[in-house]
Design a protein around this nucleic acid. Structure first.
Length: 416
RNA sequence: CGGGGCGUCGUAUAUUGGUAGUACGCCUGUUUUGGGAACAGGUAGGCCGAGUUCGAUUCUCGGCGCCCCGACCA
C-alpha cells in the first residue's frame, strides 16, 4: 500500500492528556482516533493490526471445531428478562438500556449468552447435534464507570466471544480446557509469550472457578498471585494465603504482580438453559438442560497491550505476526521510479509492504518509520542504488544489511 | 460515583482585565532528500452559558469535555 493513500497522519508531539503508553503511541502513529473517552476509530494502520490479530484468533477457534457467526448488537428487553439479567442491578450499571420513540425497550450488547441460547433453541436439540460451538468477533458496549488507558478499558470495544453447549458437565469441562490451550496458542502467536492462566472466582452463576488470562504488566489493573516454579496462579479475589507462603501446588515461591486481563473462560453449567427453558433430547429419551460455556478475548484491548509491551523511546515495535505491514519501503532522494518498481515487485509477491511515496525529507520518513514500527525497513536511495542494492534494517536493531536488488527475493524467502 | 488536574488555530504551547503570540502542520512559490530541511508569502484559535466590568480568553458561578487516583469491573 502507498503511504500517500493510506490516511496515515502521524503527530510529532505526544497528545497533551494521554499518559498511557498505548494511547500515546497509537494516537501519535495514526493507528486510532479518539471519538470520546473509551471510544475509538480504528484508522487504516490500526485496523490492519486488528485484522492480523483477528485472523490468528480465528484460526485457533476454527482449529478447536468452532464455527464463526455474527450476532446482533441491538437486543430486545424480553430475552434479557428470561434470565433475569435485564433488571439485575449489576447489569444495569454497565448495560446501555433505552426506550426507542415507540416505547419499546432495547439494550446494547455487553455480552451474548442470551442471544446464543436464543439462536440454538430454535432448533431441535438432541444429544446427536451437541456440542455446539459458535463464536464471533463483535463490538461490546459497557458503560464503564471510568474508561481509561487508551484501548485498555473502553466503553465500546471489540471482543471475540465463543459460546459452547454440551450434554454433560464432563464434555463442557473437556472443551473448556481445549479452549484454554487454544487461547494460549493465540496469545503466543500474537507475540505475548507469557500469559498466565489465573484462577478466579466464578461469581454466582458459574460452577466452579473460572480462569482469566493475565499478562504481567506494570500498567495492569488486576493483581495476581503466581508460583515462580509451576503454572499455579490465582487472582486477588480468591487468593487466601499470605505473600511468602509456599505455592499450594508445588511448594515453590508465590509472587504478586499487577497484570492485564486479555481473556477469560467461564463454565455456566445449566443455569441459563434452565432459566430460558431450553432442553435437549438425550439418548435415554429424556429432556435435559444443556451445559453452557462462554469464552472471551479482548481483541481491541490486545492492540493496546501489544503497544504497551513492544515499544521504545521512538515508537512501536510490532511483532511480525501482527504488524500492519511486514516491510516499510522508504525511498529517499530522486529514487521514486526505482522504488515504485520495487514496490510493484513486492506487491506482486503478496508481501505486505507500505511504501512511503511522499515528498518528505529523509528525517520525516525515517522518524515515521520508527514510530509506526513495521518490522523491516527497506531504504532505496542514490547511495544504495549506486551499489545496485537496498538497505534493510530490522525495527529496534542497530544492524543494517545491504542486499543486492537481484537477491531480494531470496532474502524474502529467508524471512519465513 | 468520590477526589485531583486541565480545556487557547489541525497538533503542542505562551501571554494578558484593553490588537492573542510562537513552533510544527496545512496552502503558494523557489531551492532541497540518510534522521523531524531553507527562504518568502499565506491559512487557522480562546469548549458552552450566565455573571462582574466601560471592556473577559483571563475573574466568579454553572454546564460540558478530557486526563489521573480511588471505588466499580458478567
Amino acid at each position: 500500500m502507498k503511504y500517500s493513500q493510506s490516511f496515515i497522519n502521524t503527530r510529532r508531539d505526544d497528545p497533551k492528556d494521554e499518559t498511557a503508553t498505548n494511547a500515546r503511541l497509537l494516537l501519535r502513529g495514526g493507528f486510532i482516533d479518539k471519538l470520546m473517552a473509551g471510544s475509538f476509530t480504528f484508522l487504516p494502520l490500526g485496523w490492519r493490526v486488528y485484522q492480523k490479530i483477528e485472523q490468528i484468533v480465528r484460526e485457533e477457534m476454527n482449529a478447536i471445531g468452532s464455527a464463526e457467526i455474527l450476532m446482533p448488537l441491538l437486543h430486545p428487553k424480553d430475552v434479557w428478562n428470561e434470565t433475569g439479567r435485564w433488571a439485575d442491578p449489576n447489569v444495569k450499571q454497565i448495560m446501555y438500556q433505552f426506550k426507542s420513540v415507540d416505547e419499546k425497550e432495547y439494550g446494547l450488547s455487553f455480552t451474548h449468552e442470551e442471544i446464543f441460547l436464543d439462536v440454538i433453541r430454535k432448533n431441535s436439540l438432541s444429544y446427536k447435534n451437541l456440542p455446539i460451538k459458535l463464536y464471533h468477533f463483535s463490538t461490546k458496549f459497557r458503560n464503564e464507570a471510568r474508561a481509561k488507558s487508551g484501548l485498555l478499558r473502553g466503553r465500546e470495544f471489540i471482543m471475540k466471544d465463543l459460546y459452547s453447549m454440551h450434554t454433560t458437565q464432563e464434555d463442557l469441562d473437556k472443551f473448556y480446557w481445549e479452549v484454554k490451550d487454544a487461547y494460549l496458542r493465540a496469545f503466543n502467536r500474537v507475540g505475548l509469550k507469557d500469559v498466565k492462566v489465573v484462577e478466579a472466582s466464578g461469581g454466582v452463576f458459574t460452577s466452579g472457578h473460572t480462569h482469566e488470562f493475565q499478562l504481567v504488566s506494570p500498567v495492569g489493573e488486576d493483581n495476581i498471585y503466581f508460583c515462580n516454579k509451576c503454572d499455579w496462579a490465582q487472582n486477588k479475589e480468591i487468593y487466601t494465603h499470605k505473600i511468602g507462603d509456599p505455592c499450594p501446588k508445588c511448594g515453590g515461591q508465590v509472587e504478586e504482580a499487577s497484570s492485564i486481563e486479555v481473556g477469560n473462560i467461564f463454565r455456566f453449567g445449566t443455569v441459563y438453559s434452565e432459566k430460558m427453558g431450553i432442553n435437549f433430547k438425550d439418548s435415554d429419551g429424556k429432556d435435559k438442560p444443556p451445559y453452557l460455556g462462554s469464552y472471551g478475548i479482548g481483541m481491541s484491548r490486545l492492540i493496546g497491550v501489544l503497544a504497551e509491551v513492544f515499544n521504545d523511546d521512538v515508537g512501536i515495535k510490532w511483532p511480525k505476526s501482527v504488524a500492519p505491514f511486514l516491510i516499510h519501503l522508504v525511498s529517499l532522494g530522486n529514487t521514486k521510479t526505482e522504488a515504485e518498481k520495487l514496490y510493484r515487485t513486492l506487491a506482486e509477491k503478496s508481501v505486505d509492504v507500505l511504501w512511503d511515496d511522499r515528498e518528505e525529507s529523509a528525517g520525516v520518513k525515517l522518524s515515521d518509520a520508527d514510530l509506526i514500527g513495521i518490522p523491516y525497513r527497506i531504504i532505496v536511495s542514490d547511495k544504495t542504488l549506486a551499489q545496485e542494492s537496498v538497505e534493510i534494517k530490522e525495527r529496534g536493531s542497530d544492524k543494517v544489511e545491504m542486499v543486492k536488488l537481484g537477491e531480494l527475493s531470496s532474502w524474502l524467502e529467508k524471512l519465513e
